[in-house]
C-alpha cells in the first residue's frame, strides 16, 4: 500500500519533468518563429552590418539551431539561464531580482481569494435563496465581468488619488517596514484577487449545494453531529474534492494575470519584465520568464495531484 503510493508519486514527478522538457522544446521553436532580432533592437537602427555580425556571433545567434538549443539547456545547469542582450546581464540574475515581487503578489492574492472565496461560497450555499445569497451572486458575477485594469484604475483613483492612503505605483519591500509594504501591496493584491474570489465563491457555492443534501449528511445529522461539524467535517471536505482542481488552475491563471496587474501598478515583477522583453525583442529573456512561470504551474499541479491522494481516498488506487 505505502510502496504503491510512493511509486505513484514518483511516476507523477517523472511526468512533470517530461512536461517541462517538452515545454523547453516548444518554447525554443517559438523563439525561432517570432519575428524580430534582439541584436538589431539592441544596437539600434544606425548599426553597421559589421557590428551586427560581430554581436550576432558574440551571443551565439549565428550557431545552428540545435546548438543554440543545447547551449540554452546547458545554461540552465550552469545557473545563468542564458544572456539577456537588452539588459546585458545573465537572465537568472534578472529573474531572481524580479520574481520576489511577483511571488509575493500572487501568493497573497491567492491566499486572500481562497479564504474569502470559499467563505462567501459557504455562506451563499447555507443561505440559498435568501438575500445574502443573492447579494453574493450579484457581486461575484460583477467580479468576473469587471476587467482587471478597470478595477485597478478605479482603486487607484479612490485610494491613491482621492484619499491618498496608498501609493499609485511602485513596490516597497517588506524590509522597509510592514506598514509601507502593506500600503504598497494591498491595491495590487485586491485587483489580482477580485476575479478569483468571485470564481471561488461561485464554485464553492455550487459544490456545497451538491453535497448539502447527500445521504451521508443525513446520516451525520441522525448521529447527532452538531451543525458546525456537519458543515466543516462532512459537507465542506467533500465539496473541496472537485474544488481543488479549480483552485489550483486559478493559481496558474493568476501567474499569468499578474502581467496586467504589475503593469497597472508598475511593479517590478515578472509581468512587467515580460512586457519589456517583448518590446526589446529580447527573446532569450522572454522564454526564460515563461519557462519559470510554467515550472511554477507544473509544480502546483503536481502538488494538487499528490494532495488528492490524501483528500480523496478513492483516487489512491
Amino acid at each position: 500500500m505505502k510502496g504503491k503510493q510512493v511509486r505513484k508519486i514518483l511516476k507523477r514527478v517523472l511526468q512533470s519533468l517530461i512536461t517541462i522538457v517538452l515545454l523547453t522544446v516548444i518554447l525554443f521553436l517559438l523563439m525561432q518563429l517570432i519575428p524580430g532580432n534582439p541584436i538589431i533592437n539592441f544596437l539600434g537602427s544606425n548599426a553597421t552590418d559589421e557590428e551586427i555580425a560581430y554581436y550576432t556571433h558574440l551571443y551565439g545567434y549565428d550557431l545552428p539551431v540545435w546548438q543554440q538549443y543545447v547551449n540554452w539547456i546547458k545554461s540552465m545547469f550552469d545557473g545563468t539561464m542564458g544572456f539577456s542582450v537588452s539588459l546585458q546581464r545573465n537572465v537568472s540574475e534578472i529573474i531572481f531580482s524580479r520574481i520576489g515581487v511577483t511571488l509575493t503578489l500572487v501568493t497573497w492574492a491567492f491566499i486572500v481569494s481562497v479564504i474569502l472565496g470559499v467563505a462567501f461560497g459557504i455562506i451563499a450555499a447555507l443561505n440559498r435563496g435568501k438575500a445574502v445569497d443573492t447579494v453574493i451572486s450579484i457581486l461575484s458575477n460583477a467580479g468576473i465581468a469587471m476587467p482587471v485594469f478597470w478595477i485597478g484604475i478605479i482603486l487607484i483613483l479612490i485610494f491613491a488619488i482621492r484619499l491618498g492612503i496608498c501609493p499609485s505605483y511602485g513596490y516597497t519591500p517588506i524590509s522597509k517596514g510592514l506598514g509601507p509594504w502593506f500600503r504598497g501591496i494591498v491595491l495590487p493584491v485586491t485587483v489580482l484577487s477580485f476575479p478569483s474570489i468571485s470564481i471561488f465563491a461561485r464554485q464553492t457555492r455550487s459544490s456545497m449545494l451538491d453535497v448539502i443534501n447527500q445521504d451521508y449528511v443525513m446520516t451525520a445529522k441522525s448521529k447527532g453531529v452538531k451543525k458546525r461539524d456537519i458543515i466543516f467535517k462532512h459537507q465542506l471536505r467533500n465539496a473541496l474534492v472537485p474544488l481543488l482542481t479549480i483552485i489550483v488552475n486559478r493559481f496558474a491563471q493568476m501567474m499569468g494575470a499578474t502581467v496586467l496587474t504589475e503593469n497597472i501598478f508598475t511593479l517590478p515583477g515578472m509581468g512587467s519584465l515580460m512586457i519589456n522583453s517583448i518590446n526589446s525583442r529580447d527573446l532569450q529573456l522572454f522564454v526564460d520568464c515563461i519557462l519559470v512561470i510554467a515550472v511554477f504551474v507544473t509544480v502546483a499541479n503536481l502538488i494538487v495531484d499528490i494532495l488528492y491522494g490524501f483528500i480523496d481516498p478513492r483516487t489512491k488506487e
Binding site: 447527500q214 445521504d215 451521508y216 443525513m218 446520516t219 451525520a220 441522525s222 448521529k223 447527532g224 453531529v225 462532512h234 471536505r237 467533500n238 474534492v241 483528500i311 480523496d312 481516498p313 478513492r314
Partner: peptide, 18 residues
Amino acid sequence: GKVVSMVFQDPMSALNPI
C-alpha cells in the same frame, strides 16, 4: 444517535466517502 437513530435505505451513499 443516542436515544433514537436511523438506518437509511441506500448504504452506497449513506457513508461519507472520504
